[in-house]
Write a protein that binds this DNA or RNA. Structure first.
Lengths: 207, 207
DNA sequence: TCGTGACTTTACCAAATGGTAAAAAAGAGA
DNA sequence: TCTCTTTTTTACCATTTGGTAAAGTCACGA
């Protein structure tokens, strides 16, 4: 029996609450230990439910993980989608960078969940990368290329620009354990990071 | 019985050969599946040895992983160590970036092993981060700060500069699965990436 | 308040997995 | 060749882990 009817996902209040709990707990556990490093017992304990009870709401461990990844994908793409073709190029790109930085700071678990999955070759992402990420990536690459061609930005490879924005912003969430050792003052680290990243891309992009 | 006598690690030819095989196989497996995602059976199969035979050379799964991480740390620090205080600042930094990029291209498994470990909170790195990485990081931060103070580089936060160099260069190895989807032509991707990263940091650092 | 379907718990299980004991085999030196 | 040490294999084992069956328990509308 499929647990996610495509037509009507009508779920009772209890179902909504418990599914939410489970996904929240699973995000915690999966992002910290990776897929295989996490156990249903850990997730169950974190969710305050019994293991069989969890399997009443999800068909298995993998389905929980896949559900998390699918939901995450939307949230992840959103800041890029917001980049407006009609705005000022530099402003739009810096806005995107700021939103990305914000996400790293506010949702490090999501970032690490994603990173874990990609590093291991994205075995559970299905076609999400091709069907979700790629089209948007290509679209925004064309947009940036147009801006460059119009002389509104310094010449830059759009694809690698986006990739380097991802790299720098996500790094602070994904490699937090390292950053914390190297820059002990966490508060200061984030503001300085914000400053640094903005300066870097401003210098790169100013026409 | 400790397997690594601190005084004399005198190992027979067979020991040397088999330990090497095991570490090579383990690097393959660990970097692809993470610590808990990897099994001794997988490592044994990849090494062409039986599981108990592997446990004849290493006291357990964790010891293999820790050994890999410790070895990796040295290789990882080397490019940064090479950055010379007496050279031209911009040349030295670009040289470092080039070496880092090279390492990502040539040793993606090592990069991913490291990334996996850090993302999960570095539970098996022991004090390697504090005792190995931190001192060198601090030393090079001071060096860069001196260069900035002498007006040889544009004003930049040394710590975040180094971190952003790591982020951009390692991203191509760690997130290879994603990059391959977005930029299908792998050959072109690397040369364009090299170009992009160099341009980016040149613009950031030129005084 | 009673019955029915939604939800939970208890008691399991089979497979996988890290690891061990001890016997067998293979080397190496005399 | 014979002996002693190193290396490898065979046969296990205890625990963990994802998952199931089935017997409860609960909530809510009639």
């Amino acid at each position: 029996m499929s647990e996610a009817p495509p037509t009507a996902p009508k779920r009772s209040r209890i179902q909504q609450r418990n599914r939410k709990r489970i996904l929240e707990a699973a995000l915690d556990v999966f992002s910290q230990h990776g897929y295989r490093g996490s156990t249903l017992d850990q997730i169950a304990e974190a969710a305050g439910l019994s293991k069989p009870n969890i399997l009443y709401y999800f068909s298995g461990k993998e389905e929980i993980h896949v559900t998390l990844l699918a939901r995450l994908m939307e949230a992840w793409l959103d800041p890029l989608e917001q980049m407006n073709a009609n705005g000022d190029p530099l402003t739009e790109l810096l806005g995107y960078i700021r939103r990305k930085m914000e996400m790293s700071r506010l949702y490090p678990r999501e970032s690490r969940l994603f990173a874990n999955e990609i590093i291991q070759g994205a075995p559970r992402m299905g076609g999400n990368l091709e069907t979700g990420l790629k089209p948007l990536f290509d679209e925004k690459c064309r947009l940036i290329q147009d801006w460059v061609d119009a002389g509104l930005l310094a010449p830059v490879d759009p694809a690698h620009l986006i990739i380097s924005i991802w790299a720098t912003t996500q790094h602070y969430a994904d490699f937090e354990a390292q950053v914390r050792v190297l820059i002990p003052d966490n508060e200061a680290a984030w503001t300085a990071a914000q400053q640094h990243v903005e300066t870097m891309f401003t210098k790169l992009l100013a026409p």
